[in-house]
Design a protein around this nucleic acid. Structure first.
Lengths: 169, 169
DNA sequence: ACCGTACATCTCACTACTAAGATATTAGTG
DNA sequence: CACTAATATCTTAGTAGTGAGATGTACGGT
C-alpha cells in the first residue's frame, strides 16, 4: 500500500508571497496539512508490521474483515474497505493464490461469491493481528488516552460531515 | 491521486468474535480508523476542485510549492511533497509537457535542476488556488474554528510523535 | 592534481490499484 | 412468460506512483 503524497506544508504561514488568506481559511488549510501528515506518519509506522508478513495494508484489511466477521460477500468486503469492484476481484485473487482465502458459492444468489479465510489464513491472522494492534498503539502513543478520545471525537465529526457533503458528487 | 483504502471499521466494537482487546488498544484502534476515514473523506471532497482543472493532488502540491516559494530545486520539492526521486522526475516531466513548469539549470551546481512555474503555470494556479482553498474550508466546516484549532494541535502532536518513532526503520 | 564519498537527478521495471465496460444472474412489471 | 432494470462479479487497459541502480557532478582530504 502506498501512503498519499503530502501537500506542501507552506500554505499558511511561511512565505505568503501572493496572498494573505483570511484567518478562517488559514485555520482550515493548517488542519488540512497536519491531517495529511499525521495520517501519513501513522500509516508508515503501522505498515511495517504487515510488510514483515508480506501483506499490504489493503490485503490485511480484507483478512481482518473476514477474521472478525466470518465469510462475507465480495461486495460487502468491497464496501467495507472502499476499493473498486475490479480491485476486490484482483485482491481476492492474489490472496487465494497464496492460499489465505477461498471463494465459495452463495446458495441463494448465483451471481454472488463469498470470500472466506482458509485455515492457513486464520493462522496467519492469529499471528499477525496482535502485533499490528500493538504497532498502532505505539504509533498513537504520542497522545494520552484522553487526548486520543478527544481526537477521535473531533475526527469522527469531521469525517462524517465531509462524507455527507455530497457523497460522490 | 488515489485515496488510501480504509481499514475495516469493525475492530473495536461490532462483532468481537475472537478477542476483547484491552481498553487502551481499543481506543487506539478506534482513533486509527476514524483518522483514516476522515482523511479519506476530506481528500475526496477536496480533490474534486482539482480534477476540474485536470490536476491530481500531487501535481497540485508541486505547483503550489512553486507558486508560493518561487523556483525550487527538484530535491527540495521532493522533500516537501514526499514522493520518491523517480516520482518527482516523472511528475515534473508531465507538468513540463503541459507547459506548466520548466526546468532551469542551477548556476552553482551542475547536478541540480530548478523547477519553476511558467507564465501559463502561474495563470493556472491563480485560477485554481482560491477555489481549492475554499473547497478545503467547506470540507472542514463540520468543525468550528475552535474545534479545528484543537484538532490541529492534537494531530500535530500525534504526527510529530509518530514521525519521530523511527523515521524509516 | 587525484581519490573517494556523497549527492542530485534520471532510467527502468514493477506494483497496486482505478475506471469503464462486459457478462451472468436476479427480481420486478405488465 | 417475456422484458427491463438492477446487481454482483470479472476483464481489460491505463495511471500514479515506488525502489534499485545508473550517471554525472561536487568537494574534502592528501
Amino acid at each position: 500500500m502506498t501512503a498519499p503524497p503530502a501537500t506542501a506544508a507552506s500554505s499558511a504561514s511561511e512565505a505568503p508571497k501572493r496572498k494573505a488568506p483570511d484567518a478562517a481559511t488559514a485555520t482550515a488549510l493548517k488542519l488540512f496539512v497536519v491531517l495529511a501528515r499525521a495520517q501519513r506518519a501513522i500509516h508508515e509506522r503501522t505498515q511495517a508490521s504487515l510488510e514483515a508478513h508480506g501483506l499490504t495494508g489493503t490485503e490485511f484489511a480484507i483478512l481482518e474483515a473476514l477474521y472478525h466477521k466470518g465469510p462475507l460477500l465480495l461486495g460487502e468486503v468491497q464496501r467495507k474497505i472502499l476499493v473498486s469492484s475490479g480491485g476486490i476481484t484482483f485482491l481476492v485473487d492474489k490472496l487465494a493464490e497464496r492460499g489465505l482465502v477461498e471463494r465459495k458459492l452463495c446458495p441463494t444468489d448465483r451471481r454472488a461469491r463469498y470470500a472466506a479465510l482458509t485455515r492457513k489464513g486464520e493462522t496467519l491472522m492469529a499471528a499477525v493481528f496482535p502485533g499490528h494492534a500493538e504497532a498502532i498503539c505505539e504509533a498513537m502513543s504520542g497522545l494520552s488516552r484522553a487526548e486520543q478520545k478527544q481526537a477521535t471525537a473531533l475526527l469522527k465529526q469531521l469525517g462524517l460531515s465531509a462524507a455527507s457533503q455530497g457523497g460522490k458528487a
